[in-house]
Design a protein around this nucleic acid. Structure first.
Lengths: 231, 231
DNA sequence: TTTAAAAGCTGAAATATTGCAGTTTTAAAA
DNA sequence: TTTTAAAACTGCAATATTTCAGCTTTTAAA
């Protein structure tokens, strides 16, 4: 693929749009020349927790999970991000090492942007620095609100929350293709796989959802929101 | 109290120290003239979730909890902070409204610093902006690691984690005065009050801790860490 | 100091959740 | 296409957690 074609692809890039709001085309070119555009397959690891990383990731197409493995190698999903969007928070600014892993949930187009060049721009342009901070904290906020759901609801409510979150915030459509396995939903809801399966089939019996292969339909959003509130 | 005495108290202030690393004494004076120094009693609310806030808080003495109430008015403690330190994260930068409440766990000395003046400085001095970002994200990090403990451990491990965290990171001593009630520990560990009580008395029977009134002693840190890992 | 309210404690029953073992379905590889 | 492994599912027993009711101790207010 020629450089021109690559640059063409950038024309639709949200990140470029924001960079160019604060910096100029020249600075974007400098950033561009320090950026890798890579294709990842489903299941492939993009950033690994604990690794030193000199890059941050922008996801242009596909979806990824941001996850954390504890001392006992038990995995926990912090959040799911669908392109286009930044994957800040895993490693930006105050950390030498990646706090979390990022793994592709489906085939993805990812740009890895050099962190030092970006930091250099942030140091010369405060407005841009504050805009980057927005990116980082909005991802934190998503995770934190999932954690709050974990912490004060039981499994029914947590899974209802996750389904609503995926439909409204991530995939942004109603019958949506659930790219997470039951095991991954369990790692998101912090419960056992079996509990996810039991809960989903209960939801289906009660007419709240319909689940055909990987396609999930929320049939009764209002009642699902009630389960989220009370469960 | 005269202005001179107030300024004297600032000599020991960590926040002033950091401000003066990046800005000058003049800028600190400007900040100072837009700062309120207030005394809060145990149980008093300092910042309220959902309120508009034009200030961020610096805690010079005492300790506070940062907490969140959900739709059902169930409270969840995100983290505990002991002075001196910043209470960033509740409202800094990207939020109009406070995301969380801050409430005094014991009598506190708090400085409320004008957010707009601070933002003004951040906009003219990127290094200072990035330093502020450090403050914010380090508080997020503490909360997130507590949430990770919640999400992949059972109550035994969660309460062990909380005791270790309070002793090592918050109060920084071993026999420490537990300023949280059992109900508040439950709101921190995301479980029922009774479960906290059962668990603490089990820990005491097993010789892990000693609990006399409000004074808590960790007798066997190594075994407590084991409980945190396996529990 | 007295009194009332809040916090702390206990054990037992009800409920929620996990872990297991075996089966079926789906997706990927040969 | 066939084969194989992974994912999804089911019901049940074991375990963890909550809820409840009643009680004691501590703290704060009158």
């Amino acid at each position: 693929m020629s450089l021109n074609q690559l640059h063409e692809r950038c024309q639709l890039c949200l990140f470029k749009h924001i960079v160019c709001q604060y910096l100029g085309e020249k600075e974007f070119e400098q950033l561009y020349s320090n950026t890798l555009q890579l294709q990842y397959k489903k299941g492939e690891n993009i950033l690994k927790q604990g690794n030193k990383s000199t890059q941050i990731a922008y996801i242009s197409t596909g979806s990824v999970k941001i996850h954390y493995a504890n001392e006992n190698h038990k995995d926990l999903i912090m959040t799911v991000v669908k392109g286009p969007g930044m994957l800040g928070g895993a490693n930006v600014f105050n950390e030498e090492l990646n706090m979390f892993s990022v793994t592709a949930l489906e085939d993805c187009q990812i740009c890895l942007i050099d962190l030092n060049v970006l930091k250099g721009f942030a140091l010369t342009n405060s407005a841009f620095a504050l805009r980057l901070l927005d990116f980082v904290s909005s991802m934190f906020k998503d995770s934190i609100f999932n954690f709050i759901s974990l912490a004060n609801k039981q499994v029914n409510g947590r899974i209802a929350d996750i389904l609503i979150y995926l439909s409204k915030k991530v995939y942004k459509r109603n019958p949506f293709v659930l790219t997470l396995t039951r095991k991954e939903i369990a790692e998101f809801a912090a419960c056992s796989q079996e509990n996810v399966i039991h809960t989903l089939s209960r939801f289906e019996k009660e007419g709240l959802i319909k689940n055909d292969k990987k396609l999930l339909t929320i049939l009764d959003m209002e009642r699902l929101i009630l389960v989220s509130k009370n469960g």
